[in-house]
């Protein structure tokens, strides 16, 4: 069988890739995609722990469901904000949106 640490390392790698994307992307939609990657890494962790560790009430899977729900809400609001940004700045590059930079 696959040991738990394999899943955790895979999830850590996925999280690191997503973090790199969130830190370096210029396109705001690209940043949102990287955020989704990080959400997926965390969910994978939850589900793996829920499969491997003894538990009474499926906490891991339940929490993963709530994370997915909140991620959906985040994506909807985030993309609405991106559309608003594009309407005001004619750009979705986050380094050009620096109105409050001193």
């Amino acid at each position: 069988m696959v040991p738990l640490s394999h899943y955790l390392i895979l999830s850590a790698a996925l999280f690191a890739i997503g973090m790199f994307g969130a830190l370096t992307r210029r396109n705001a939609i690209g940043i949102l995609m990287a955020l989704e990657l990080m959400f997926n890494a965390v969910n994978l962790n939850f589900v793996a722990f829920s499969r491997y560790l003894p538990q009474t009430m499926l906490q891991g899977q339940i929490f993963a469901i709530f994370v997915i729900t909140v991620a959906a809400a985040e994506a909807a609001v985030g993309l609405a904000i991106v559309l608003g940004l594009y309407r005001n700045f004619k750009s979705v590059n986050v380094d050009e949106i620096n109105l409050m930079k001193g």
């Binding site: 997926n40 969910n43 994978l44 589900v47 829920s50 499969r51 899977q61 469901i65 997915i68």
Partner: peptide, 21 residues
């Protein structure tokens, strides 16, 4: 990731992953 959920015996989450994501 959905396929990994199936591998982890979390079929419902795999279905939710495909539907939602």
């Amino acid at each position: 990731v959905a396929a990994l959920y199936v591998l982890l015996d979390a079929e419902f989450l795999a279905a939710v992953q495909v539907l939602l994501y």
